[in-house]
Design a protein around this nucleic acid. Structure first.
Length: 872
RNA sequence: GCCUCGGUGGCGAAAUCGGUAUACGCUGUGGACUUAAAAUCCACUUCCCUUUGGGAGUGCGGGUUCAAGUCCCGCCCGAGGCACCA
């Protein structure tokens, strides 16, 4: 055994041994005695290099995999590549390399990085979503969903760059302008395919209760996203044939929502039907038929509608922009009073949400209040709270209070509370045939069409005679050509005659292939199921999937809390309903790791885009307190904008490559430091100060192993033995909480204790416990020392240590002494001492005598095993 | 803007059910070893006060309690998400 700790040597040897023995190959049912444990970390996008977020993610998964293996589970931990996506196209634009080649090169390099970290991965199950044998099944399931009506076609609104004549991703829109051209982005409606996730809204919401292994915050976020609300959908009738505002209400006007005829009904949804008597205007989206109609002979309105169509489609932009509106001159009738209500076009009303129209109640909705103040629309109070005075001068929180408010100025509804008023008004609307109570979801259907090259082709053929025809199953997969090089001016598939040209499956005549590809969230919605049957060429999944699924522990970034996790849950339910799998939910337990953050530096390009700088390309400017305030480019010495801290990502170029760390200190140090730095769920601002400490610890573990020898053990209890077992108890408790930073601490505390008593008869037992607790975090050094010190053949086959009750026993314990809640000393008592004895002992202490100042004790609180508080 | 989470020494953090705030580590300071440096080891390291002792203290302001980092109310700041980044 070498005197000196040499990580490169022992890590390469350990990894070679694992590879040769295929140690981490998993198989189903070979050992039916063992419960299965499917441990899955979210697969990476092959962006080029690993970053610290990956190291954190995959080390967490590895710690859990190795711990469960030692605890006797049949473990599977696979790895693959989320290989389709936008960055490959951006790289192609920059370097003129085909996305396929760039992606495969990145996968090859990142695989060597993952392997050098010593993860217990079953590489036999590796998959990449850009390979036809994987995405064939995206296409196959798409066709099944089309047959069942879960997939369908309708128009979608996209960001359109008028200069590049191309669709932009939200990420490519900066302050409403195209990232490369600087042109003001337009909203454009184009056809696209959707998945009917709203058909599953109710189950996606209620089934959250069947997921006790998910963090509450993730379930709350998903529930809010699905956004179930009970309200009233009702109509304002209108008749435009009688011009002007004097037209009489005609509640019996023609049926149909938002009809385009002269008469019709303007439908809206509200959760505050109790405020219906306070409606003073309606607002519709720029694309609403009534807006279109009004604009026909109103040039100012037409111009405003045009203006509404500029800017991005992002909700965050919509919510923060200035709320603007313009009256249409069209009046609709209040469904209950018949009063005339003017219709406005509002830039904040979305056509894609609900009916594309809302009622305006300025007195009881903060946004409507601001809108009404701005445009001089009447404000009519219809809700009151006892003791509060309403004023149209400024908004007050209670105006929208559902709990305390009751109806006022509302005729027959006066005095009713929120619920009673909603019931009464809903039933009156229903009697008129103008509305009903309705459950509505905020969740929208999932638009999956992307006007991009590097993705899974949508298996549709367009025929002039037959229309959109599904590609027959026996012609799947529709293979994406891998030699295209996008140039930023649209999808290169549109120029590929060999891809475009095909025969119509129905009539056999010449036809054109669909060039849109699928959202990459489709790829990641079922990869976890494919890992279970990666080699099946005749089916998407098979019985092995039902053995392994659901995933016992899923680990990934909190940024995926809503979209990826919700889409995966939806996809699972679709597969279940198609009879492909027998489980309802894909992920039994979920650990959402906090993001690893780093400073972001950027500069505006002359066209209004943003150019990011990597940390190694800049020099930091700090203030006296050491806080980063700015930076300059090393290349040109000119200042760059400091964007604060944010997630490490390829696009912001602020990722830190772990390679240097691994080469300098070894994988064990990198892994240990990553686990030690913070608890997994917490956001972590990257800093490598402290890596030295982790490395020092590894060296000390090695040095202790070198000098401990192979001596035997005695049974006599010692202080060391008690301390080691106490730390072990704590470590096992923390492991159960997935709090690995304190497990790492426990390892350090164990070593501190061992170093103080190297000659203790229990030192060898204690070191054996330390090695096993450490092994999931730093597997190479533990593997090597376990074998060298003859604890056993392979530490992976060793039993996980449990604390011994005999080692923890004690007959005295120390209690904290408080006087009036202040810490004043301590006292030692027998473990089995009665309360009265403890009280007497406490009162007899010197500290009690001193701080009670001769006063009598009013009350004595004894917390067993912890403290005594004397109140005087 | 909306939804979710977080804020504890100079820094990363710990504190299990409301019960000793700052474990473990980093940095720093002093010392040992060395011709010297590195490495290693030892000691100290929340702040304030004149102490051998005492006081304050977990983003800010209130509250509940014998006792609050932990529970309640109101703010401030940071991060994640907001449906075409993944």
């Amino acid at each position: 055994m070498q005197e000196k700790y040499s990580p490169t040597e022992i890590e390469q040897a350990a990894q070679a041994a694992w590879n040769a023995a295929k140690t981490f190959r998993s198989s189903e049912g070979t050992d039916t005695q063992k419960p299965k444990y499917y441990c899955l970390s979210m697969f990476p996008y092959p962006s080029g290099k690993l970053h610290m977020g990956h190291v954190r993610n995959y080390t967490i998964g590895d710690v859990l995999s190795r711990t469960h293996r030692m605890r006797g589970y049949n473990v599977m931990q696979p790895m693959g590549w989320d290989a389709f996506g936008l960055p490959a196209e951006n790289a192609a634009i920059q370097n003129k390399v085909p996305p396929a080649q760039w992606t495969y090169d990145n996968i090859a390099y990142m695989k060597t990085q993952l392997q050098s970290l010593g993860f217990a991965l079953d590489w036999d199950r590796e998959l990449a979503t850009c390979k036809p044998d994987y995405y064939k099944w995206n296409q196959w399931l798409f066709l099944r969903m089309l047959e069942k009506g879960i997939a369908y076609k309708k128009t979608q609104v996209v960001n359109w760059d008028p200069v590049d004549q191309t669709v932009l991703a939200n990420e490519q829109v900066i302050d409403g302008c195209g990232w490369r051209t600087g042109a003001v982005v337009e909203k454009r409606e184009i056809p696209g395919y959707y998945f009917g996730i709203t058909q599953y809204a109710e189950e996606l919401l209620s089934a959250l209760d069947t997921l006790p292994g998910w963090p509450e915050r993730v379930k709350t976020m998903q529930a809010n996203w699905i956004g179930k609300s009970t309200g009233v959908r009702f109509a304002f009738p209108y008749d435009l044939s009688a011009a002007g505002s004097t037209n009489l209400p005609s509640p019996l006007a023609g049926e149909g929502a938002g009809g385009e005829g002269a008469s019709g009904q303007l439908w809206v949804f509200t959760t505050r039907a109790d405020t219906l008597m306070g409606v003073t205007f309606c607002a519709v989206a720029a694309e609403h038929p009534l807006a279109t109609r009004a604009a026909q002979n109103n040039p100012a309105l037409a111009a405003f509608i045009d203006e509404c169509k500029h800017g991005s489609v992002m909700e965050a932009d919509m919510a923060t922009m200035e709320k603007k509106g313009l009256p249409t001159g069209i009046f609709v009738s209040h469904p209950l009073t018949g009063a005339q209500v003017e219709v406005w076009v509002g830039n904040y009303v979305l056509m894609s949400y609900g009916d594309g129209a809302v009622m305006g109640v300025p007195a009881h909705d903060e946004r409507d209040f601001a809108f009404a103040k701005k445009y001089g629309i009447p404000i009519r109070q219809v809700i009151g709270v006892a003791g509060q005075t309403f004023s149209t001068d400024s908004w007050a929180e209670w105006y929208a209070d559902k709990q305390r408010g009751t109806c006022v100025n509302s005729g027959k509804y006066d005095g009713l509370n929120h619920e009673a008023a909603v019931e009464a008004i809903a039933s009156d609307l229903a009697a008129l045939g103008l509305g009903e109570k309705k459950v509505q979801f905020r969740l929208r259907d999932w638009g999956v069409s992307r006007q991009r090259y590097w993705g899974c082709p949508i298996p549709i053929i367009h025929c002039d005679r037959c229309g959109s025809v599904p590609v027959p199953d026996d012609q799947l997969p529709v293979v994406l050509p891998e030699d295209c090089v996008p140039d930023g001016s649209g999808n290169p598939l549109n120029k590929r005659e060999d891809f475009l040209h095909c025969a119509c499956p129905q009539c056999g005549k010449s036809a054109r292939r669909e060039t849109d590809t699928m959202d990459t969230f489709v790829d990641s919605s079922w990869y976890y199921a494919r890992y279970c049957a990666p080699d099946n060429v005749t089916a998407m999944v098979d019985e092995r999937t039902n053995y392994w699924m659901p995933v016992d522990q899923y680990i990934g970034g909190i940024e995926h809390a809503i979209l990826h996790l919700l889409y995966s849950r939806f996809w699972t339910k679709v597969m279940r309903d198609l009879g492909l799998v027998n489980y309802d939910e894909p992920f039994a337990n979920l650990l959402t790791q906090g993001m690893v953050l780093n400073h972001i530096f950027s500069r505006r390009t002359d066209k209004g885009g943003i150019e990011y700088f990597a940390p190694e390309e800049i020099e930091l400017v700090r203030n006296e307190g050491g806080h980063v305030t700015g930076a300059t480019s090393l290349a040109d010495g000119q200042p760059v904008d400091y964007g604060g801290i944010g997630t490490m990502s390829k696009s912001k170029r602020n990722g830190v490559d772990p390679q240097g760390l691994i080469e300098q200190y070894g994988a064990d140090t990198a892994r240990f430091f990553m686990m030690f730095a913070a608890p997994p769920e917490q956001t972590l601002e990257w800093s490598d100060s402290g890596v030295e400490g982790a490395y020092r610890f590894m060296k000390r573990v090695w040095a202790f192993g070198v000098q401990i020898g192979k001596g035997g053990a005695s049974m006599a209890p010692t202080a060391l033995r008690r301390e080691i077992h106490l730390l072990l108890k704590q470590a096992n408790y923390d492991l159960g909480k997935l709090q690995f930073n304190t497990v790492a601490s426990a390892c350090m505390k164990m070593l501190n204790a061992l170093e103080k008593a190297p000659a203790d008869p229990h030192a060898r037992e204690g070191f054996g416990i330390l090695l096993r607790i450490l092994s999931p975090i730093a597997p190479h050094i533990s593997h090597t020392l376990w074998r060298e010190l003859a604890y056993g053949a392979d530490i992976l086959d060793a039993a996980w240590p449990e604390p011994l009750a005999a080692a923890l026993e004690q007959d005295e314990q120390e209690l904290v002494l408080q006087i009036n809640g202040k810490h004043r000393g301590s006292l030692r008592v027998k473990v089995d001492a009665q309360h009265t004895a403890i009280e007497a002992a406490a009162l007899g202490t010197e500290a009690a005598q001193k701080f009670m100042e001769g006063k009598a004790a009013k009350k004595i609180i004894v917390v067993p095993g912890r403290l005594v508080n004397i109140v005087v």
